[in-house]
């Protein structure tokens, strides 16, 4: 069984191939290069380096967001198109959950986080329960201050994960003090192998045609539209 995994949900890029439960290759880069330029070349490269032809791929796992709208769409479009035209199952995995996998050896709360500008973040809280990652707080778009308040009440050590954590490290430390834990940059790299490993545990595949990113946010145009419409009470 050959899995292809893709994560382009934020500026890092990661692609991986897992064969019969073993990671064959994984290529990750934190460089801020346009995904549209490098995502498909990266997919082609991991296939070439492992001598796997596209038709040999048995399943596709993709990071479904949240994250950069454009970034998520590039990965999802590639994954959808490959799954559909190859006739193979597609699995969408939360970008936050797969990032949280980087903390799977940590005994405490895991808080993966992506910056969403204007003091907002995409974030969630997970913890390990046995060998499974379980959700403590759902993936959401929220104000950082709100998130920190919730975390404070949990009165447990929390490991923050993600390359955007450094943007907010000061406010996190101010709010949470010793409760907040930070690790080396190595844990901040999103890994397509984690996307695959979570997809392998999914109960069923997603429907390919109707698969869409999990933006976790409606567009500004829709927000404005709701504002304009008279409310019927």
């Amino acid at each position: 069984m050959i899995w292809l995994g893709i994560d382009t949900a934020n500026s890092p890029l990661s692609v991986a191939i897992v064969k019969d439960g073993e990671l064959l290759i994984e290529e990750s880069s934190m460089m801020k290069v346009n995904h549209s330029l490098r995502a498909m070349p990266a997919v082609e490269e991991v296939c070439r380096k492992t001598s796997i032809s596209p038709s040999e791929i048995d399943a596709i796992a993709v990071s479904e967001g949240p994250g950069s709208y454009t970034g998520v769409r590039i990965g999802v479009t590639i994954a959808k198109t490959l799954a559909w035209t190859l006739g193979k199952p597609l699995y969408g995995v939360s970008s936050l959950k797969s990032l949280a996998m980087n903390g799977q050896l940590y005994n405490g709360l895991l808080c993966p986080l992506f910056d969403a500008r204007r003091s907002n973040v995409y974030s969630a809280i997970y913890r390990m329960a046995g060998e499974e990652l379980v959700s403590v707080m759902e993936d959401q778009h929220c104000a950082l201050a709100e998130l920190l308040e919730q975390l404070k009440e949990m009165k447990e050590p929390i490991l923050f994960i993600g390359e955007d954590v450094k943007l907010h490290e000061q406010s996190i430390r101010e709010q949470l003090g010793e409760q907040a834990k930070f690790a080396s940059f190595a844990v901040n790299v999103p890994r397509a192998s984690s996307v695959i490993s979570l997809a392998m545990r999914a109960e069923q595949a997603d429907s390919v045609h109707s698969f869409t990113p999990q933006y976790r946010r409606i567009t500004e145009a829709e927000v404005n539209l709701v504002k304009k419409e008279p409310t019927n009470e």
């Binding site: 709208y69 454009t70 479009t77 590639i78 994954a79 490959l82 035209t85």
Partner: peptide, 19 residues
Amino acid sequence: VGALLIGVNAAKAFAFANQ
């Protein structure tokens, strides 16, 4: 740009999958 990217990436994936 965001609209173009969908067609472009779908085309690239389709072309690769079907050589």
